[in-house]
């Protein structure tokens, strides 16, 4: 069954067409990678999917619901959660607290609950604490649970952002260049972590420049160039596709 469906999604910025009539279907389960040269429109596509920018044309359907132009927080509430190309942590909060924020969607209680602090609220707080600890463990950040997010090294910040997104228990997780700034050891670990996330039932859509990571992690690959989808298939198929090679070598398509 398809989890996410993109129907002719287009995003214009003035004269520039950053995403040009992109259609695609992401099935439930597995890891799909979106690749393409710098400025190909990958992040812009993510913004259109996650509600941060309403596409100029086309529709985004998630789990059978038309989410085109819906507010990001409502899209997150129905199970589509993203991370950012430039890490966006809550820098003043500790790693632990960052992940706890991620638990927002599946807990309840606002100002009144905070003031009254009933036994039910306390119980839910303990649950959140447990969940957060497990997630930190999952990405290997247990040791730095009480460190302010802003003082973590970059690689750990990336992992923390993923843990925080997972805390929201998404059906579909969008990762924008999760390996950017990681060394090769960290990248290898990240690849295993992403496979594990998928194995636990969360569908993953990721943008990535690191081809080794894409080849080892993704089940399917979508290739964008100048906003258009130029190829789609398994990693091997895409690697041998002449249009893709041309795009990456910076040659006009026909010349390849």
């Amino acid at each position: 069954m398809s989890l996410l469906e993109l129907q002719n999604v287009t995003q214009r910025f003035g004269g520039l067409v950053a995403v040009d009539d992109v259609s695609a279907t992401i099935a439930q389960g597995g890891v799909t990678a979106v690749i393409g040269p710098n400025g190909a429109g990958k992040t812009t596509l993510f913004n259109a999917i996650s509600g941060f920018r309403t596409p100029s044309a086309g529709r985004v359907v998630f789990g059978g619901v038309d989410i085109t132009g819906m507010a990001p927080e409502r899209i997150a509430a129905i199970g589509l959660v993203r991370t950012f190309q430039l890490v966006q942590l809550f820098g003043e909060l500790t790693a632990m607290e960052n992940v706890k924020v991620g638990c927002h969607l599946h807990t309840r209680g606002d100002l009144l609950a905070a003031i009254l602090r009933s036994p039910a609220t306390r119980r839910s707080e303990r649950q959140v604490e447990d969940d957060a600890r497990k997630l930190l463990d999952f990405v290997g950040l247990t040791d730095v649970a009480d460190v302010a997010a802003s003082s973590l090294p970059y690689g750990q910040q990336r992992l923390l952002e993923i843990a925080r997104a997972l805390a929201a228990q998404p059906k579909l997780l969008l990762l924008d260049e999760p390996a950017a700034g990681l060394n090769s050891g960290e990248t290898a670990r990240l690849s295993a972590t992403i496979r594990e996330i998928a194995a636990r039932g969360t569908t993953v859509l990721l943008i990535e420049h690191d081809m080794k990571l894409v080849m080892s992690t993704a089940d399917r690959v979508i290739v964008l160039d100048f906003g258009r989808k130029i190829a789609e298939g398994t990693p091997d198929e895409v690697r041998d596709n002449p249009a893709v090679i041309a795009a990456y070598l910076g040659m006009p398509e026909g010349a390849a």
Partner: peptide, 25 residues
Amino acid sequence: RIRESRFGRALSAVAGSEDAARALG
């Protein structure tokens, strides 16, 4: 109590990054 609650965390999240907060619902 506000500080140590789900509500307070949501406020800190908004303070830290509105985009990230919204992405988490």
